[in-house]
């Protein structure tokens, strides 16, 4: 069985406040697992915040209910994993492929950045929920 060393879970309206709450959750998570090195903490936090921000900025409600953001983060001995979900959301539109915008573009770098920060990114859609699963194999000091 997989050993979970520490975890955090957030769920709430997909709004700006959620981003600060998720970031605070991550900061407190790292205090529980000081053996996770600074580089892993930094990269994983950035990837999770990018994904959560993407949902807050772009997720569209599928029906009358507002979109909710869910972020479940777990630390295993050699693996950091986050499930970043948009509940009650339409399927994402457009290509979910990382782009390389012009150097003076002010947006469009998020997905490429996420891919550069974690080992794998997968997408699932089930029961009206879009979930991005971010995994980073923890490096050794």
């Amino acid at each position: 069985m997989t050993e979970i060393l520490a975890s955090r879970a957030f769920r709430g309206p997909a709004a700006e406040d959620a981003i600060e709450a998720v970031h605070n959750d991550l900061d407190s998570l790292w205090l529980d697992v000081p053996f996770v090195n600074d580089m892993d903490q930094m990269t994983f936090t950035t990837a999770v915040i990018e994904s959560a921000s993407n949902i807050v900025q772009h997720a569209q409600p599928a029906g009358e209910r507002d979109v909710e953001l869910g972020v479940e983060t777990t630390v295993q001995p050699a693996l950091l994993q986050a499930r970043v979900s948009a509940y009650y959301a339409k399927p994402p539109f457009g290509p979910m492929e990382a782009s390389t915008p012009d150097e003076d573009a002010e947006s469009g770098r998020g997905l490429a950045l996420i891919e550069a920060l974690v080992t794998t990114v997968t997408f699932e859609r089930q029961d009206g929920t879009n979930t991005w699963v971010l995994s980073r194999t923890s490096s050794q000091d």
Binding site: Q57, E106, G110, L113
Partner: peptide
């Protein structure tokens, strides 16, 4: 302490 792609976009702007 932290910047994401939105923050980077703001700096470019």
């Amino acid at each position: 302490a932290f910047m994401d792609s939105s923050g980077l976009g703001a700096l470019i702007g």
